[in-house]
Amino acid sequence: MKIEFLRILIRLELDPVRTEMLTAFFETYLNLNTDEEQHLEKELQVLNSEEVRVLELISSYRRKGRDQGRIEEGKMLFCKFLDVQFGKASTSLQEKVKQTDDLSRLNSLTDRIFAVKSLEEAREVIDHTFI
């Protein structure tokens, strides 16, 4: 069912935003278990040229999903660190971290945030990262 949906979606030749929206909707209501995912992967290994586009769509969607998951996990981790280290005094910094959706900036923050010793150092690191 999932492959057929993706084939139809490819044939519609919608713009990327609509394609992503429909794919996200479909993914929300058709979660595959591990066995079904493995079956899907096997089916995707035997592809014709149209199905290659289906595979590219799936790969793109999965990559975006993984990136979004990393962003959310990163924000949660930094906010938890700030809360544990500095308590309520770090609330404004936590809000600043929560506002970003830039994975590269969060990765940059990772390299420096855990070395800070004071709230002021944390503020400097975050301000410098999110300029």
Rank of each mutant, 00 (worst) to 15 (best):
L32K: 13
L44W: 07
M76A: 10
R63A: 02
S90N: 12
L103K: 07
L119E: 02
G69T: 12
D101Q: 05
L57F: 14
Q85S: 13
K75Q: 05
R63E: 05
K42H: 11
A122D: 01
E56L: 13
L57S: 05
A115R: 15
G74E: 02
T100R: 04
V54W: 01
V52D: 10
L82G: 00
E37P: 10
E36K: 08
L47C: 12
K88F: 12
L40M: 07
V46M: 15
R53E: 08
N31I: 08
Q68Y: 04
T91E: 09
L40T: 07
T28R: 06
K80I: 04
I58H: 09
D111E: 10
L47G: 13
Y61K: 06
L109H: 01
L44H: 10
L77C: 05
K75S: 02
T110Y: 12
A115V: 06
L77Q: 13
L77A: 06
S104W: 14
L82V: 00
T34H: 10
E51N: 13
C79T: 03
L30R: 05
E95P: 01
F78A: 04
K96E: 14
V116S: 01
Q38G: 09
F78P: 00
K96F: 03
E36S: 09
D35C: 12
R105P: 02
L44E: 11
F81A: 02
I71W: 06
L57W: 07
D102C: 11
L82C: 00
H39I: 07
E73L: 12
S92C: 13
N48A: 10
S118D: 12
N33E: 10
G87L: 06
V125N: 02
Q99W: 06
R62T: 04
G69S: 02
L32M: 12
I113D: 00
A122G: 03
E36C: 14
K98A: 11
Q68F: 15
L32V: 15
V97R: 00
L55W: 14
R112E: 14
K98Q: 09
T110M: 05
N33K: 11
T34Q: 05
H39D: 03
E56Q: 14
T110K: 13
S59Y: 13
E124C: 02
T91W: 09
F81N: 02
I126A: 02
Q38Y: 01
K64T: 06
D83F: 09
D35N: 09
S92V: 11
I58A: 15
E72I: 13
Q99T: 04
K88A: 06
D83S: 04
E121G: 10
G69V: 07
D127A: 12
N107I: 03
S90R: 00
A115F: 10
N33T: 14
T91F: 14
T100Y: 07
